[in-house]
């Protein structure tokens, strides 16, 4: 007798664990051929809030990791993704991509992780610096992570948008809550499995599947979310994110680009989700000695 295949239950990813949605709801997106992709969690407001709590809890530890260590962990994510390439290619194909396109997308995603891995311990030298103030003070500026970042992932890709948006956010030292592509959700949960086996502390990345419309408001109005990153060209969605964000002055970042583009990466995707802190300290200057010896 032929062996019966074991099907995967797609869950969500909160605080390093894989629960089903607390709401018990699901939806069944289909591909272009009309084939069901699976019973996917239709996450709720409550899931968003739980994810924010998990992200806030994880933020302190993650932001205080050495930048070098964060770089190693991002590299590790790339390694794990490389090892599970076949599964992602299969999922992308199931969601409608050709084999060649699927292979390309996974390759770009891996390379993007490696790219951002290298940035972790270089950001503050390139973006910060010493400010030559006129008074007798030592003054320097460094970038610091913003906190919890809400990511409304690219709705037109399953993997590359997700990876391109998450990588700079966590490279910066933030934690995040990600709303996956509603109609192309498979890679998001499989990517959560990659994260879970890559030394990324639980809660640093939380991934929810379901309706963007439904989850955007609880995420963008949440008082403990510091920034929202949105990819997409829907003016109405962007407008509502900007309005939701007002109450605690979330920083809103909008990236309308095609993430498959080789140029859709750079330092500014990291510094966009960082604050700049400037520190002053007096320099003792009491005698007449100079350095001109």
């Amino acid at each position: 007798m032929a062996r019966l295949e074991v099907l995967k239950t797609y869950k969500i990813y909160i605080g390093g664990k894989f629960p089903r949605t607390e709401s018990g709801r699901y939806y069944s997106p289909k591909n272009a051929k009309g084939e069901a992709l699976g019973n996917i969690c239709l996450s709720s407001r409550k899931d968003v809030r739980n994810a924010v709590v998990a992200a806030r809890k994880a933020f302190g530890g993650w932001s205080e990791r050495a930048a070098f260590n964060r770089g190693q962990i991002l590299y590790r994510i790339g390694e794990m993704l490389e090892g599970r390439k076949a599964q992602f290619i299969e999922e992308l194909q199931l969601q409608g991509a050709t084999k060649a396109k699927a292979e390309k997308e996974v390759a770009v995603a891996i390379d993007r992780l490696i790219y951002y891995a290298g940035w972790c311990d270089k950001v503050s030298q390139v973006s910060g610096g010493v400010n030559p103030v006129a008074s007798s003070h030592f003054n320097f500026s460094v970038n610091e992570p913003m906190g919890v970042v809400g990511v409304a992932a690219d709705q037109s890709t399953s993997l590359i948008g997700l990876v391109s948006q998450i990588a700079p956010v966590i490279a910066a030292g933030n934690s995040c809550v990600v709303i996956a592509a509603e109609e192309l959700p498979l890679c998001s949960i499989t990517f959560a499995e990659v994260l879970n086996s890559s030394d990324v502390p639980g809660g640093v990345v939380n991934i929810l599947t379901g309706s963007l419309d439904e989850m955007l408001k609880p995420m963008a109005t949440h008082m403990d979310v510091n920034a929202i990153v949105y990819t997409g060209n829907d003016a109405e969605t962007l407008n509502s994110i900007q309005e939701f964000a007002v109450e605690n002055l979330k920083r809103v970042r909008h990236y309308p680009q095609d993430w498959m583009d080789a140029k859709a990466q750079g330092l500014h995707y990291i510094t966009d989700v960082m604050e700049l802190k400037t520190t002053w300290h007096p320099i003792e200057n009491i005698g007449g000695a100079t350095s001109s010896y």
Binding site: N131, P132, V133, A134, S135, H137, N139, S141, L276, T278, W280, H281, P282
Partner: peptide
Amino acid sequence: NTYNKFDPTSP
């Protein structure tokens, strides 16, 4: 060890 210092070069 100081307070309320400002400078054009300082963000």
